[in-house]
Computed example of a mutant assay.
Amino acid sequence: MAGTTTLKSKTQPSLSIQKLLLVLGLVGLIWAPFFIYPIFVMKVLCFALFACAFNLLLGYAGLLSFGHATFFGGAAYFTAHAVKEWGVPPELGILIGVAGASLLGLIMGFVAIRRQGIYFAMITLALSYMFYFFCLQAKFTHGEDGIQSVPRGYLLGVLDLNNSFNMYYFVLAVFLIGVLIIWRFINSPFGMILKSIRENEQRAISLGYSVAHYKLGAFVMSAALAGLAGAVKALVFQFATLTDVAWQMSGEVILMTLLGGIGTLIGPIFGAGFVATLENYLATSEFPVTIITGIVFMVCVLLFRRGIVGEFYASRLGRKLGFEYRR
């Protein structure tokens, strides 16, 4: 009884503190557009969801993809084309983008999961390059000009998304739904099996699990959520260009995830916010953005091997607050 009481007294304050931090974070996001330029915050939310989708594959399935820009940019193109050329409402355009990204994920994943390690990463990079050149030559993408002046339209025929505040809260809702889906996914039996495959694939095979099917499922789920981020981003900025499908975009999401901390739910969000803020402030300065971000990345790899959030979770203060780093 004494042991049980002690356990409860240690656990309940930790959970209450975590819930308090979560509530404060939500309140901060709700009030953010009143103090920060809404377009910038929407950009951060889109890239945060993109990083969380990538982390689902790397952090929980142990698969390093160099081709996630395919799903992010592909969905942006599909959504922009559907909304502008077909005149579909924004919610249907986003669904088309997510469906297109899921299909691309199914095709790419079916080919790539046959290999492991660096071979898997190189296959995803090669397939991503193929899609990049397809977008460069395809008529519906308009080549180097991209798809511009994409109308935001009316959500469900009622809410005018041309209003910045309406658009922001729509993006915030999509972001929260996406993060909730990821949280539910990684805490489901499917997610537990993924973690076991990441830790010891041969043991998972010996237990009778179809490893290829689980990997493919994680790949498609990650692609769909990355596509959701790209589709919303196309509506926020009202264009889709080759930058969205270039290999640099894949490298950027890897940087965001590693900076924040792989295998953590909050880490990629923090990493995306950090990188986006750094790029935003350095864009008007004389400092080359790529060099600065490269230096930041090297410092993080050398000093924060678990990422910034991962190191905090593993610290004494993080453990005291009830956080755990299980990577």
Results as ranks from 00 to 15, higher is better:
213 H>W: 07
143 G>P: 13
88 V>I: 14
243 T>E: 12
243 T>H: 03
130 M>P: 08
243 T>G: 15
23 V>G: 09
194 L>S: 11
262 I>F: 10
174 V>C: 13
170 F>H: 04
216 L>E: 01
306 R>M: 05
171 V>G: 06
245 V>P: 07
273 G>C: 05
117 G>K: 06
12 Q>D: 05
249 M>E: 14
150 V>P: 08
181 I>K: 05
187 N>Q: 04
314 A>H: 10
113 I>A: 04
214 Y>A: 02
165 F>E: 05
327 R>V: 01
222 S>T: 09
187 N>A: 07
188 S>Y: 10
193 I>G: 02
248 Q>F: 10
20 L>I: 12
51 A>P: 13
15 L>G: 11
97 G>D: 07
58 L>I: 02
151 P>V: 14
305 R>E: 08
196 S>R: 00
271 G>T: 05
234 A>M: 06
317 L>D: 03
8 K>M: 11
48 A>M: 11
51 A>S: 11
44 V>A: 08
105 G>T: 10
75 A>T: 10
23 V>L: 12
132 Y>T: 09
88 V>N: 00
30 I>K: 00
221 M>T: 15
182 I>T: 06
64 L>K: 03
43 K>S: 14
220 V>W: 00
161 L>T: 12
315 S>L: 07
170 F>P: 02
202 Q>V: 09
7 L>F: 14
187 N>E: 02
273 G>L: 01
1 M>Q: 13
162 N>L: 07
303 L>Y: 13
232 V>Y: 08
260 G>V: 05
292 I>H: 00
243 T>C: 03
70 T>E: 01
315 S>V: 06
77 Y>L: 09
285 S>I: 04
215 K>T: 08
63 L>V: 06
66 F>N: 04
113 I>G: 02
45 L>D: 11
212 A>S: 15
317 L>Y: 09
318 G>L: 02
217 G>E: 02
190 F>T: 13
26 L>Y: 10
46 C>R: 04
154 Y>F: 15
17 I>C: 02
112 A>C: 14
167 M>H: 00
102 S>G: 10
151 P>R: 13
64 L>T: 07
91 E>H: 07
98 V>A: 06
129 Y>S: 13
168 Y>F: 13
22 L>Q: 10
36 I>A: 11
313 Y>M: 12
113 I>V: 15
241 T>K: 06
290 T>H: 03
98 V>G: 00
17 I>E: 06
85 E>S: 15
104 L>I: 13
269 I>A: 06
256 M>L: 10
213 H>Y: 04
67 G>Q: 00
201 E>M: 00
197 I>P: 09
276 A>C: 14
132 Y>F: 15
195 K>M: 03
212 A>V: 12
70 T>H: 01
109 G>L: 03
313 Y>T: 00
284 T>F: 12
7 L>Y: 12
109 G>S: 03
3 G>N: 13
285 S>T: 15
132 Y>H: 11
18 Q>W: 05
131 F>N: 05
238 Q>F: 00
26 L>M: 07
287 F>K: 08
176 L>E: 07
212 A>Q: 08
151 P>I: 15
28 G>D: 04
220 V>H: 05
107 I>Y: 03
237 F>E: 14
264 T>R: 01
21 L>I: 11
72 F>D: 00
322 G>P: 02
77 Y>W: 08
192 M>V: 05
229 A>F: 09
140 F>G: 12
214 Y>K: 02
179 V>R: 00
168 Y>H: 09
49 L>Q: 10
141 T>G: 12
133 F>Q: 11
268 P>G: 06
214 Y>H: 10
71 F>S: 02
270 F>N: 09
